[in-house]
Every structure is written in structure tokens, then in C-alpha cells.
Amino acid sequence: MKELELLQEKLQQLLKHHNAVQSDLDRLKKINEKQSALIEQQKTEIVKVQQELTLKSVAYSAGSMEGDKEKLKQHLDLVIREIEKNIESL
């Protein structure tokens, strides 16, 4: 009889331990789901920021190219005037 009571007691302890572990598992699964959702949200934000950075980089490059175009145009105008002067002198 005593052995049966001891066995029952151990079984009860195991069941309690199992329930505690199951509760921890459920809690950790919820935390994992929240973290996974946060990671996905952050990945989306990273993609948006990368796209924005790319667009700004292109816009900046285009803006600096506009300045370069103006300088190139001025230089070409100068060269054309010099060519015209040389043609006139011939």
C-alpha cells in the first residue's frame, strides 16, 4: 500500500511539473509570436528606409548632375566662341 501511495505521490509531482512546463511553453510561444511579428515589422521598415535612401541618393545625384550640366554647357559655349573666333580669323 505504501508503495502505491508513494507512486501516486510521484505521479502527482510529475503532473504538476508537466503542467508548469506546459505553461512555460505556452508563454514562450506567445513571446516568440510577438518577437516574430516585431521582426517582420522591422524588416518592412528596413526595406522602406532602404528604398527611401535609394530615391534620395538618385535625387541627389540628379541634382548634382544638373550643376555639372550647367558647368559643361558654359564650357561648351566658351569653346564654341573660341572656335567661331578662329573661323572668323581664317
Rank of each mutant, 00 (worst) to 15 (best):
L55T: 10
Q41D: 10
D68K: 15
K43T: 00
L7I: 02
H17C: 07
D68S: 14
E3T: 01
Q51Y: 02
D24W: 07
V49H: 05
V79G: 00
E66M: 03
A37K: 07
E84L: 02
N19R: 10
I46E: 11
R81N: 15
R27V: 13
V21E: 09
Q42D: 00
I31V: 11
M1P: 05
D24K: 10
E84T: 03
E3N: 05
D26E: 15
N86E: 12
K16Q: 15
N86Y: 06
S23H: 12
L53N: 10
I80C: 00
L76D: 02
L38N: 05
M65A: 12
Q8C: 04
S23W: 04
I46Q: 12
A37E: 06
K56E: 10
L76P: 03
Q42E: 04
S36W: 04
E84I: 09
E40S: 08
I87C: 02
A62H: 06
E82Q: 11
K30H: 09
V47C: 00
S89D: 11
V21N: 02
S64F: 08
K16R: 14
T44E: 12
V58K: 15
K69H: 10
R27D: 15
L76E: 13
L7M: 04
M1Q: 03
D26N: 13
R81A: 13
I80Q: 05
L14N: 08
Q35C: 06
S36R: 12
E66P: 00
E45D: 07
S57W: 05
K2N: 14
